[in-house]
Structures are given as structure tokens and as C-alpha cells.
């Protein structure tokens, strides 16, 4: 466990909590893509099946349970408690365009052709693209609430910190996981355009709106 990894995990947790806090305090999930949140819940559910088979560490176990719980609470908020505020008309990304290629790729490129490993691989590939419905929604509406941009910033920062973690692990442990690394690079690239807008607009006190 290195500093990049722990900061990455905390950044990920902070992003999830920011989103929940936004919905909780404003009693609204306007501007949030329910589809992206369903994909993230699917990512956690398929990746953390190993909770039933292996014990890695108490930290690992607790974090997995927290991520899972939070992602299901988020879905309950969007499609249950706060469904009247859900902006369905702008959340129009077609999930099959992500799911079908991701399922196909996980059958083609994986470490082992066994169910748990295929599900892990699926979750890694899916995570790389799971934010696309959210980014698509923002480009549909042309704007995002500032709190939503903070959520996206920490979610992107988490993956960027994981890249640093992998570089560190390669140099210190000779550990590398090419499936995770390639997907992580792709995932981080999706955030670059957003990072640029976040730094040039949101951090200067302006609302994120697209021209």
C-alpha cells in the first residue's frame, strides 16, 4: 500500500460521498445520470464477488463493503426516493453500446477463462467507460451544477492517482496488471477534457457550462 493508492481510494470514497451528500441535502438528483450510477453498481457487484472467496485485508474488506453500500443507496435515491427529480429526458445514453463491447472484450482479453475472473475483467473494462452516460448528459444539457463537477473531479482524480500507484508498484514490487493499467489509462483520458474545464472554469468560481 503506497501513498498514491490510499489517496486514490480516499478520493474515490470522497466522490461517492459528495454525490450522496448533494442528493441528501438538496433532496434532488437533477443532473445526475442514473445510468452511470447503475453501471458503477454493476462494476462493484461484479468485481467484489471475491468478498465471498478471499480475505485480503480488513481495509480491503471494509472499503469494498462501503463502496457497494453507497452505490446501492445512490441507486435507491435516484430511482426510488428522489425519482421525481431524476432528469430522465437528458439521460439518454444507450447502455447496450457500452455493455455489448465490454462483455465481448472481457471474453477475448482476460487472465483466466473462469466465471469470477471474467466478471472481474468485465468490471475493469466497464469501469473505464461507466462515466460516459454522465458526461453525455452534461453535453446534452450543456451545463453541470458545481457540486456535480466536484464529484466528477474526485472520481477522475482517483483514477489518475491509481496510475501513479501502478508506476510506483512497478518500480518497487515489479508488479503490473496490464488489464487494469490499460483500462485505467483509457478511463483517465475520458476525464482530461473535463479536468480542463474544471480548472479553467469551476476553480475560478464560474459554473461549468458548455459553449
Amino acid at each position: 500500500m503506497n501513498v498514491f493508492r490510499i489517496l486514490g481510494d480516499l478520493s474515490h470514497l470522497l466522490a461517492i460521498l459528495i454525490l450522496l451528500a448533494k442528493m441528501w441535502r438538496s433532496k434532488s438528483c437533477a443532473g445526475i445520470s442514473g445510468k452511470s450510477q447503475v453501471l458503477f453498481a454493476l462494476v462493484f457487484s461484479t468485481r467484489y464477488l471475491d468478498l465471498f472467496f478471499v480475505f485480503i485485508s480488513l481495509y480491503n474488506l471494509v472499503m469494498k463493503v462501503i463502496y457497494l453500500l453507497c452505490s446501492y443507496i445512490t441507486i435507491y435515491m435516484i430511482y426510488g426516493k428522489l425519482r421525481k427529480t431524476y432528469d430522465r429526458e437528458n439521460d439518454t445514453f444507450r447502455l447496450e453500446f457500452l455493455l455489448i463491447p465490454v462483455i465481448g472484450l472481457s471474453f477475448l482479453e482476460n487472465y483466466d477463462f473462469i466465471p469470477t475472473e471474467l466478471l472481474w475483467t468485465f468490471s475493469i473494462y466497464l469501469e473505464a467507460v461507466a462515466i460516459l452516460p454522465q458526461l453525455f448528459m452534461i453535453s446534452n444539457t450543456g451545463e453541470a451544477e458545481t457540486i456535480t463537477t466536484h464529484y466528477l473531479f474526485f472520481l477522475g482524480l482517483y483514477r489518475a492517482l491509481y496510475l501513479a500507484n501502478w508506476i510506483w508498484r512497478y518500480h518497487t514490487e515489479k508488479f503490473y496488471d496490464q488489464i487494469a493499467i490499460i483500462s485505467g489509462v483509457v478511463q483517465t483520458i475520458f476525464y482530461c477534457d473535463f479536468f480542463y474545464l474544471y480548472i479553467t472554469k469551476v476553480l475560478k468560481g464560474k459554473k461549468l457550462s458548455l459553449p
Binding site: D9, H12, F175, D177
Partner: peptide, 10 residues
């Protein structure tokens, strides 16, 4: 090459 199973990252 390090063992890829179990995956120790989140």
C-alpha cells in the same frame, strides 16, 4: 509476473 488472482486493489 505477479500473481493476478486475487486482485488486491479496489
Amino acid at each position: 509476473y505477479a500473481l493476478h488472482i486475487p486482485h488486491d486493489e479496489l
